[in-house]
Write a protein that binds this DNA or RNA. Structure first.
Ligand SMILES: [Zn+2]
Ligand SMILES: [Zn+2]
Ligand SMILES: [Zn+2]
Ligand SMILES: [Zn+2]
Lengths: 159, 159
DNA sequence: CTCCAAATGTTACTTTATAACACTTAATCT
DNA sequence: AGATTAAGTGTTATAAAGTAACATTTGGAG
């Protein structure tokens, strides 16, 4: 219970909790945890906006001074997606940490094409309605990809 | 008015109408039309399911016996998307002809992960609701990417 | 028939993502 | 603590998806 070495690396941020949660989720669902996954997830938490796998690779490489390779990053990303604690923005080939790892996750992403920042809609009614409509057409939906592109509040006011 | 050479190429299918419509839409919106666009669009209409740009490239190359290049295919695809007569399935890096080119197009795609076929939900209420929710958070949405993955009716029955 | 912006042909390249296989390690069980 | 082993990583190479740049051609308007 005291062996949280991968948490101790970061003393000046608020993500230790998230990392602990991530690890717990991983163990509960039969996945292992690892140094690479910690680094990838922690970096994603830090940037707090969608980044591509290769951008992430560069960040991890610099921050942890290692020569991490694409395959490793993609493997970690796959695992984190499996755990439901990060998500891929399909329309941007980018990855982002979920805002609330413990909640349901059929995300509705609002992607600002101006600043790259994203927000989420957390109205599960829409998710349910989609499921229902699909079911009425005989379609069994397992995953929803919902991404709106446009301009966020901040960018819209400025621009 | 009699110069529809690019239509006449196909005598045993029902797409001549769609091709004519496409051409009209293109002209109205200031785009030109071209042989490559005809071929790309016609091939997409024929397959009637999502295909990647490179699959499409191979089909066009074989069907029209030409050495078409990626850049050309992508250019045509971009143009056809601009016209609103085809759509990209972001979560599959694939392209598909719209079922009804003349209608509004904020598509809701149902992608069968088993057979690759797609269907659409045509409940515009969902699109409106998304727009509204986004607006309430100060987000101005210009484009919606809505893709549900799962199993279509046919595949679900078969098991 | 002329004209020229729009589109294409071509080459080379970037970005995104995965396969294969030897090696290492996290978690479990003595 | 030490052994066990499936899960995960390192590494190399390559596939798949998409774009830049620039010379050439062409759709369609006048
Ligand atoms: Zn931290
Ligand atoms: Zn913005
Ligand atoms: Zn035809
Ligand atoms: Zn199916």
């Amino acid at each position: 219970m005291t062996d949280h070495t991968h948490h101790e690396a970061c003393t000046n941020c608020t993500h230790t909790h998230s990392l602990g949660v991530a690890q717990d989720i991983a163990r509960k669902s039969g996945h292992r945890w690892s140094e690479t996954r910690t680094q990838v997830y922690h970096t994603l938490l830090m940037v707090d906006k969608p980044v591509t796998a290769y951008e992430l690779l560069d960040m991890v490489a610099e921050k942890y001074e290692r020569d991490v390779k694409p395959a490793s990053v993609y493997r970690s990303l796959d695992a984190l997606i499996d755990l439901g604690i990060i998500a891929k923005i399909e329309s941007a080939n980018a990855f982002v940490a979920c805002q609330n790892p413990e909640c349901e996750h059929q995300h509705i992403f609002l992607v600002c094409d101006h600043c790259g920042q994203i927000d989420e809609i957390s109205d599960h009614g829409i998710n349910r309605q989609l499921l229902k409509q699909a079911a009425e057409q005989g379609f069994v939906a397992r995953k929803q990809i919902l991404e709106l592109h446009g301009e966020c509040k901040a960018c819209h006011i400025e621009g």
